[in-house]
């Protein structure tokens, strides 16, 4: 009897604990789910950062390489030209039948050097070619000159009126008459009349007229 009672008690006890266990499990599983999600997000941040850093480094390296290649090409062009000129002098038995400055002008332009002399390499390096700025300044100057001319041409119109403010010039009077006649010819087309309480309140009229589509 004692055993049976104990078993029954234990059974009841377990039954009473069962809902607590289940709730504990569900909470634990829910927590695990939240943890998993947060872990997933964190792992996505790291590779993204790595990709960004690696990409920026790669970009900088490529740009640097490109600069080096470009610079080497420019200098090699000049070296080839100089070698060619020296060969020409040797072939011509030491006689120079060309202007070195003219020959090297294009190559120097490519390097951004204004060559006064072939020898003045270091001195001329500071003189960077800026042909565009000069031309822009000239254009700007010409625009200003034109504007000034226009202002000067328009000023004589002010002297048409006499001291009392009455226009005495015949040509000006004729022009005024012409413009008045042209103004009289222009009239407002009165095919459609629209009456509104407040000026510009077209929405009200649109509601009244059924023919006017809504989107207008």
């Amino acid at each position: 009897m004692f055993m049976a009672r104990q078993v029954l008690r234990n059974g009841l006890f377990l039954r009473s604990l069962a809902p607590i266990k289940i709730t504990a499990r569900t909470v634990a599983s829910a927590n695990a789910g939240i943890k998993r999600k947060s872990r997933f997000d964190k792992t996505m941040i790291k590779p993204l950062l790595l990709v960004m850093i690696f990409g920026s480094i790669l970009n900088a390296v490529i740009a640097e390489k490109r600069n080096i290649i470009d610079m080497e090409r420019k200098y090699k062009l000049k070296l080839d030209k100089l070698k060619e000129l020296i060969r020409r002098v040797h072939d011509n038995n030491g006689k120079v039948d060309f202007d070195a400055d003219d020959e090297l002008k294009l190559v120097n332009l490519r390097l951004g050097i204004v060559g006064k002399n072939a020898t003045g390499m270091k001195e001329d390096e500071t003189d960077i070619v800026v042909p565009k700025e000069e031309s822009l300044e000239e254009i700007w100057q010409s625009i200003i000159d034109e504007a000034k001319k226009e202002v000067i041409e328009k000023t004589p119109d002010a002297g048409v009126k006499n001291k009392e403010g009455i226009v005495t010039d015949l040509n000006v009077l004729k022009d005024l008459e012409k413009s008045k006649k042209e103004d009289e010819k222009v009239y407002l087309s009165g095919d459609v009349h629209m009456m509104m309480n407040q000026p510009g309140d077209l929405n009200e009229i649109a509601k009244e007229h059924d023919k006017i589509p809504k989107f207008l």
Binding site: V89, G94, A118, T119
Partner: peptide, 30 residues
């Protein structure tokens, strides 16, 4: 650094060749 070294090296080469060419021009003039 590599870029600057390469540039200075190329500049030196250009200067040497320019010097040679100038010498030839001076010889021709004299």
């Amino acid at each position: 650094l590599e870029h600057e070294e390469r540039e200075s090296q190329l500049k030196k080469e250009v200067e040497i060749l320019e010097h040679q060419l100038n010498e030839l021009i001076v010889q021709d003039k004299t």
